[in-house]
Amino acid sequence: MNVLVTSSNDYTIVTIEGRIDATSSNEFEKSVMEVIEEGNTKIILDCSGLNYISSSGLRVFLIALKKMKAIKGQLKLCNLQPVIQGIFDVSGFATIFSIFPDQKSAMER
């Protein structure tokens, strides 16, 4: 798992690559929490390179969303691969997250 943090317009973009499973979710949580604690209030998680997620990874996504909601910030997801979208659908996460087809549309709304 790799995380790349960049910024574009007002957004901080966290690009995730690889797998978020029980062996890598702690590392992922640390990276995402750092971005939030730095005070970024508009964050996009670009999942184009995310090819596997388990409940350990979903847990981190939910923690991040709760944190962002608590500070009235924005957390958006984009570029979910079909397998990942499927897991978000069955777990009900697709209804609590703002999911966009790409970075551009995530920034526009």
């Binding site: 388990s54 409940s55 847990r59 909601k69 897991i87 069955v90 777990s91 009900g92 609590i96 997250f97």
Partner: peptide
């Protein structure tokens, strides 16, 4: 089974593993 209709604020963290296996 977890309640997957809860809002982000209401949803407990965790408890999805067995649910995903069943799905």
């Amino acid at each position: 089974e977890p309640d997957i209709t809860l809002s982000a604020e209401e949803r407990p963290v965790g408890g999805l593993g067995i649910f995903l296996i069943k799905k």
